[in-house]
Design a protein around this nucleic acid. Structure first.
Lengths: 162, 162
DNA sequence: GAAATTTACATGAAATTTCATGTTTTATGA
DNA sequence: TCATAAAACATGAAATTTCATGTAAATTTC
């Protein structure tokens, strides 16, 4: 009985599957799947995803400091610094030191940056509405609540302000 | 009325906040927040996150082909190829061509690789249980369902097999 | 059944990311 | 208030990732 008599596939492996039901996999895969389309649009606009995230954050809070931006855009600080430098070269944001606390660097949208940000945020809102529709009506609100709960319980949750 | 009379903070910006309620942000942030602890453990084990993902996939299906592995481990193919090469150098996986279809490269766990994979999968299961507890009882199952629904609707959903 | 496509990986160069660390400025504390 | 610690960024070198493309093998077409 060590060998199945009708082993079509070469008797591959164990039978218990871990990955496809694993919460962290589901979260990552859902995030990727849900983002794919819109992120493709972002790239069509000549932006990389982290750059779009920065724009979205600045849309909410122009003049945010780098560290906060990093938290909300989910980008590590030194990496963000370099991304911001590129965005500055490109003319969509500007950096200015904070006179109140001269350690801080605040990042501002330029007019072009703001236009881009607003256009993309509008698109993102439409796309999100589509997504939430796909999610069979009330599921949408529920999944958001659940995700927010998860985040709140796991991360201290700060504000983009200050 | 253009200027608030008691503007404590320098009258920062608009009032509507987009990011913090945006589904794609919630998904990405939830994924990050939920994964942070365990991924730290993974790094303590001397692995990077993508390497752990490969091990987990191989735990489910030893001898998976590179393309499938890439889909399930959420890693772009050419990047995965290089990661696998490193893992091979390190002695935790082996590559072997598939005689049935000689374009394919199949990846197998070495004994050390399997030990690592099994230990980490066990830890991951415990960690997931903790997470699901944090998520107030039944919320856990629901969030999983919702995520799976999202993925199924958005991604064709293939199997690690073949 | 030969040519044209497609699939599956591998690879090299350019670009980006990471990691550790440096600098400057603000908080803290004895 | 002076020293020390902490916070906020910036930066350089090494490592990784990306992108386009190359190669080999299977599949589809005509």
């Amino acid at each position: 009985m060590t060998d199945s008599p009708l082993a079509q596939p070469p008797a591959p492996e164990n039978g218990d599957t871990f990955v496809s039901g694993y919460l962290l996999y589901l979260l990552a895969a859902a995030s990727e799947a849900a983002s794919a389309q819109f992120h493709a649009r972002v790239r069509e606009e000549g932006l990389r995803v982290p750059e779009w995230r920065v724009l979205a954050c600045l849309h909410d809070r122009d003049g945010a400091m780098v560290t906060r931006l990093a938290q909300f855009a989910l980008i590590e600080q030194s990496r963000l610094t370099k991304i911001i430098a590129q965005m500055e070269d490109r003319g969509i944001v500007t950096r200015r030191g904070d006179p109140e606390d001269r350690r801080r660097t605040r990042v501002y949208l330029t007019p072009e940056g703001r236009a881009l940000a607003e256009a993309l945020v509008a698109e993102a809102r439409r796309h999100e509405a589509d997504l939430l529709n796909i999610l069979a009506g009330s599921d949408g609100a529920r999944i958001k609540q659940a995700l927010r709960a998860l985040i709140d319980r796991l991360a201290p949750a700060e504000s983009l302000d200050a």
